[in-house]
Design a protein around this nucleic acid. Structure first.
Length: 349
DNA sequence: AAGGTGCGCAACCGCCGGAGG
DNA sequence: GCCTCCGGCGGTTGCGCACCT
């Protein structure tokens, strides 16, 4: 049984000791009390309807797994297969919560988990995928064979977040722009600040080059996908990105394609421009631009240069459609690349 | 040597959505 | 439509280690 460290960090951690502390036979449950558990208890006391916990927490082992527990779990999964984690917890003899068993298996015990440092290519891919997808670690992990979402999440929150933070001295420069900086730095060793957005400039939701509010992200993606492919066969954005990330492992051509996707400012601004209606409240840079255009048109008195039977509203709609058309054409190109990547090119004609 | 501090990462939590009754 | 079960996800926590003073 392998008990090597999941990811050797710079510090020479003794994994055996850190994972299986000497006192692991006496679980650290007392020290692992969480605020969430107390909250649930309080809500239950108040008679508030709360979801039943996945298993009876009381008396369950918590904290680091012991070597014996790992061995039991591995043997059980070998015999019965993955899944049915509740039955694993109940029948294996492990005094562990079903979720804990699942997590331990998926993040550590699963045989095909890749050990060792994140390579530069992987890091590059993580950055690009994060730029595209945001904090959807499971999807990102799906494109990195052998890597787990937890590992990537940790890697991002520790290593990359720090790197990103170090590139821009201006604290108010958006993180997504720092991602672009990091990408550029990794590509040619230079920092291009052209992507920097004035911190005072209104910003809107998007995937890269644009700040995004987590609650709006999914909604915006869906809205974008609806708008983007309105004149072609509809491909749901979620499906697109999901399928993008669940291809067979080791598909180097597609990996390299993804690496070559230029998630640059223009592309993302194009995406952002389509957000203006779907995500009210925040004005994107493109929306700002559109606003300028429409504002200028208004100032120039649209009606004077138009047939009398065409209203200014019609003009606005016309110009809007032209602007949208430009945005969509470039975006369409990029999405065609993605479609090609997904073998969905025929659906994009 | 001893105490303080920062960091990495395993593991926890709540929430969510799909499946099935 | 409602409820429960189950698995999955992303955010967060805190232990243990290495480094610093």
């Amino acid at each position: 049984m392998h008990l090597i460290k999941f990811k050797p960090c710079l510090k020479t951690t003794n994994y055996l000791e850190s994972t299986y502390p000497p006192n692991c036979s006496t679980p650290l449950s007392q020290t692992f009390r969480r605020e969430g558990g107390r909250k649930r208890e309080r809500e239950r006391e108040r008679g508030k309807m709360v979801r039943r916990p996945c298993c009876e927490k009381q008396g369950m082992n918590k904290g680091p797994w012991s070597a014996e527990e790992d061995a039991v779990l591995i043997n059980y999964v070998k015999i019965h297969g993955e899944g049915k984690w509740r039955s694993v917890a109940q029948n294996s003899g492990l005094n562990r919560c079903a979720k804990s068993c699942r997590l331990r298996w998926l993040n550590y015990l699963k045989p095909d988990i890749k050990r060792g440092d994140i390579t530069e290519d992987e890091e590059d891919l993580i950055i690009r995928l994060h730029c595209l997808l945001g904090n959807r670690w499971a999807l990102i992990a799906g494109r990195l064979p052998g890597r787990t979402d937890n590992e990537i999440k940790n890697y991002w929150n520790t290593t990359l977040a720090k790197k990103l933070g170090s590139f821009s001295s201006q604290s108010r420069v958006k993180k997504s722009n720092r991602e672009q900086e990091l990408l550029q730095y990794r590509n040619d060793g230079s920092i291009n600040n052209s992507n920097q957005v004035n911190a005072d400039q209104p910003s809107g939701p998007g995937m890269c080059g644009i700040s995004i509010l987590p609650q709006e992200e999914k909604h915006c993606l869906e809205e974008k996908s609806m708008g983007l492919v309105s004149n072609s066969r509809s491909i749901d954005n979620q499906d697109l990105f999901s399928s993008l990330l669940v291809r067979d492992a080791g598909d180097e051509d597609h990996l390299s394609f993804l690496m070559s996707i230029d998630v640059d400012k223009d592309f993302m601004m194009g995406v952002a421009g389509l957000d203006s209606q779907s995500c009210p409240g925040d004005r994107t840079a493109n929306e700002e631009n559109n606003y300028k255009i429409f504002g200028d048109l208004d100032n120039n008195n649209l009606a004077s240069s138009s047939p009398s039977n065409i209203t200014s509203d019609d003009q606005v709609v016309k110009v809007e459609s032209e602007v949208m058309c430009d945005q969509q054409s470039s975006l369409h190109l990029e999405l065609k690349k993605l479609a090609s990547f997904l073998d969905l090119e025929d659906e994009w004609i």
